[in-house]
């Protein structure tokens, strides 16, 4: 069971969280400017890297905040967790860099 650091509540057991998929997917500003194929790419296709992966987590049983996590998909080591800046759902917020914490294993 992972130990995930909520940027607000600190380290908590994985059971308190729900997973929100890959972070950093930028929603197209004008969906109608995209071809069907491009739109489908945005909708359905996600990276599945071996190694570093940025993903969204939701502290569902806690403060109800969505936040970003950088996790290694091989070792499961969490490199850091961070608050979000908003648009792009997954970029670390410049204003909240103080919240990005080095995670213990």
């Amino acid at each position: 069971m992972l130990l995930i650091e909520c940027p607000w509540c600190g380290p908590r057991a994985e059971t308190e969280f729900s997973y929100g998929g890959e972070a950093g997917i930028e929603r197209p500003a004008d969906p109608y400017a995209l071809s069907d194929a491009e739109w489908a790419d945005y909708l359905f296709f996600r990276r599945n890297p071996r190694g570093a992966h940025r993903e969204l987590w939701h502290h569902a049983q806690g403060c109800r905040r969505w936040f970003g996590v950088e996790r290694d998909t091989v070792s499961y080591r969490i490199e850091k967790s961070y608050r979000l800046s908003g648009a792009g759902s997954g970029r670390p917020a410049a204003a909240h860099i103080e919240a990005s914490k080095e995670k213990r294993r």
């Binding site: 509540c9 908590r12 057991a13 059971t15 308190e16 049983q61 806690g62 403060c63």
Partner: peptide, 10 residues
């Protein structure tokens, strides 16, 4: 204080 799980309840 903390919001967390107890048993299977939040």
């Amino acid at each position: 204080c903390a919001q967390t799980g107890l048993g299977r309840a939040a």
